[in-house]
Simulated scan of single mutants.
Amino acid sequence: MKLKLFVSLILLTTCFAAFGQEKQNVAAGEKGLIKVSVMYPYAEGKTFNMEYYETKHMPMVAGFLGSNLIKYTIEKGLASGIPNQPLPFMAIGTFYVKSITDYQAAIGPNRDAIRADFQNYTNITPVILVSEVTK
């Protein structure tokens, strides 16, 4: 019985150690990626259709990015960081890509299609920030 317990503890410890290492490697693997943040500022009278954005718009843009795309995320704004202050952004879509050059080459020819699709989910002009993940 003691041997079974000892072996179980060893296996459990090994699993936790492996999981921790995997998580660390994933985070370290993001350093150097290009992050494209598409932010939709909140303002009175502005609208945003999250369902359309999640199911149609973002997958369309992701398709244009092809193998350069590592992942994308979608965030729905809930509140300001300061109580009783207006929400700064209604939504933020983020693309993580390997190469800014490949990103620009993919977006350039599809720019009109991407912009034309805005009317299907929002009346907000997005603010776009392209940055490099440093940590």
Rank of each mutant, 00 (worst) to 15 (best):
T125Q: 14
I10V: 14
T13Q: 12
A106N: 07
V61N: 00
Q104K: 07
F64I: 02
G66Q: 08
A62R: 04
K98R: 06
G108T: 12
Q21S: 09
Q21V: 08
S67N: 15
V133P: 07
E54D: 12
Y42L: 05
G63T: 05
Q85Y: 04
T125K: 13
G32H: 00
V133I: 08
E132P: 06
G66M: 07
N49G: 09
F6C: 13
N120W: 00
E44C: 02
N110P: 11
G63H: 06
I34Q: 11
H57S: 08
D112N: 05
A79G: 11
K76M: 15
P83S: 04
K71H: 13
R115D: 11
F95G: 02
V97D: 02
V127G: 04
K4G: 14
A43H: 03
I34K: 15
F118V: 03
I114F: 01
Y96S: 00
I107Y: 02
E75P: 15
I74N: 15
K31H: 08
P86C: 01
L9R: 07
S131V: 04
Y121G: 08
P41R: 03
F19M: 10
G77I: 03
M39E: 14
A62H: 06
I82W: 00
P86A: 02
Y42M: 07
T13H: 07
A106C: 06
M60P: 11
L9M: 11
P126D: 02
K46R: 09
T14Y: 03
F95Y: 05
G45N: 07
S67R: 12
P86I: 00
L11E: 03
T134D: 10
P41I: 01
G20H: 04
A91F: 02
L69C: 11
G108Q: 14
V7R: 12
F19G: 05
L3K: 14
G29K: 06
K46S: 06
G29M: 03
N84S: 09
V38D: 11
A43V: 01
A106P: 12
L33N: 12
M39D: 10
T122G: 10
S80Y: 02
V127P: 08
Y52D: 08
N110Y: 03
K46M: 05
V97K: 01
K31T: 11
A18M: 04
M39K: 15
I100S: 10
L12S: 14
